[in-house]
Design a protein around this nucleic acid. Structure first.
Lengths: 244, 244
DNA sequence: GTGCACGATAATGTTAACAATCTGGAGGAG
DNA sequence: CTCCTCCAGATTGTTAACATTATCGTGCAC
């Protein structure tokens, strides 16, 4: 697959997208803080802020016309998401995840997505089956046409739909955090030529198992799939290199 | 098992235990905030603050002789741990996890602990095998003697050791958060008579598989084990009851 | 008697000034 | 030339006052 997971090439870059819901999950609710957090998050995910880059509160505050307190809160939120690293009295840096850590993250993702796939196979409705099959067909078409962008979008949509069908908010929350930390590595992987040809049959197998309402089969299929992602990560750069 | 997981009966109750390391994980480093967070966390885990209880910043600030800012930071930290729920402009409450959610949490734990067990089976040293066997023997003895307290401690120690041997920081972090949210339910389960008799053989099976260096076997064994915990949770109270 | 609008109260959210801490370099001693 | 001390600048952490928002009781209209 191209990213196993999310990341659309034209993903949320510098878009100053606002989080619409006022009650943001378990966090409180700051007005500016959310906006700043979203912007900085976008910048990190888009790769504008490269590894180990320092994030000075005053600078960010001025750039986004927010108070330092709001920036502080935003950095706290991002730290809790695992995107930035805060050191006592020394400020915040964007966290550079090593290849070794990316593998660990993906391993955890593997088993949790396995759980979701199994639950999805138990709970999928006939309408859901139709939709999954539709995504599978579209994937086949996209790969045949060499349309990497569309395939990547479908990939994300497939994983999202599976999580949605599984209806496991706790697992979904864990996954979303793990995914965010790995975006850069996923992106790297997506650029590899030949990856779609490898991942397409894996994706189709996942769809088949869920549509057959086989929880065990679905879990095995998605684990095989992510196992191949891990293998790709390993050959990518087993060192401690932090990419940038 | 008695708690599958942590919770010693004489667990960290009201102890104003301080977090020793100055650089607390990914968080920043507040002086008072850490102290307050530890105290409130302890109170929640000990059940002194019952479900849905309101946490007023000013009250806590006075009680622990800290500034409101420190309390605010502490509540933010606890919210990020999933122990507290913050609603915009309406303050913080201790989060009451329903039985349904406790089951979901335990399901995720099941697969992640499965990963840890598999890794542990791959990486365990001869010394580690000796230690695990020792824990197993002690468990047998404790159950035979009806010593629930000791068995509970050993249970926690076993799971801790497995995580340590697995050497997967990412998985460990995910587990520690999930575990904290579930403490009250685990505690409930621990009080059930007959649970040790059910869980002892499951624990011994886990130890056997890890000592046999069989990753697949270890994962299956620990999943069987936690599956039985989930079953117990189901019969406990499948409703939306929040316990208190 | 019921329902609605309004205002007092309490709590949270925000801001700006102040204090504490760390980094880096200049200067001098050895 | 090297190393150590110490100071200045920069940056984060903290505090207290202020602003905003929700709650809840009161009183009025109907």
């Amino acid at each position: 697959m191209i990213g196993t997971v999310a990341e659309t090439p034209e993903s949320p870059v510098t878009s100053p997208a606002e989080e619409p819901p006022a009650t943001t999950g378990a966090d409180g609710a700051r007005a500016d803080a959310d906006r700043v957090a979203a912007s900085v998050r976008g910048a990190i995910l888009a790769g504008e802020l490269v590894g180990e880059q320092r994030l000075v509160e005053a600078e960010i505050a001025e750039r986004y016309s927010a108070s330092r307190g709001a920036v502080r809160t935003a950095l706290l939120m991002l730290a809790h998401e695992g995107l930035v690293e805060r050191i006592a009295n020394r400020g915040a840096r964007v966290r550079a995840v090593s290849t070794a850590e990316a593998i660990e993250i993906t391993e955890v993702r593997m088993v949790v997505e396995g759980l979701c796939a199994a639950k999805a196979a138990e709970r999928v409705t006939d309408a859901g089956i139709d939709e999954l099959r539709g995504i599978g067909d579209a994937m086949r078409t996209a790969v045949a046409a060499g349309d990497v962008g569309t395939y990547s979008q479908l990939n994300q949509r497939l994983h999202d739909r599976i999580r949605e069908i599984a209806d496991q908010p706790v697992a979904a929350e864990v996954l979303s955090r793990l995914r965010a930390q790995n975006v850069r590595h996923q992106f790297r992987l997506a650029l590899r030529p030949g990856r779609p040809q490898v991942s397409l049959p894996e994706h189709l197998a996942i769809i088949d198992e869920i549509c057959a309402r086989s929880p065990g089969g679905a879990e095995r299929a998605i684990r095989r799939h992510i196992e191949s992602v891990i293998e790709a990560l390993r050959t990518s750069g087993p060192g401690r290199e932090t990419m940038s």
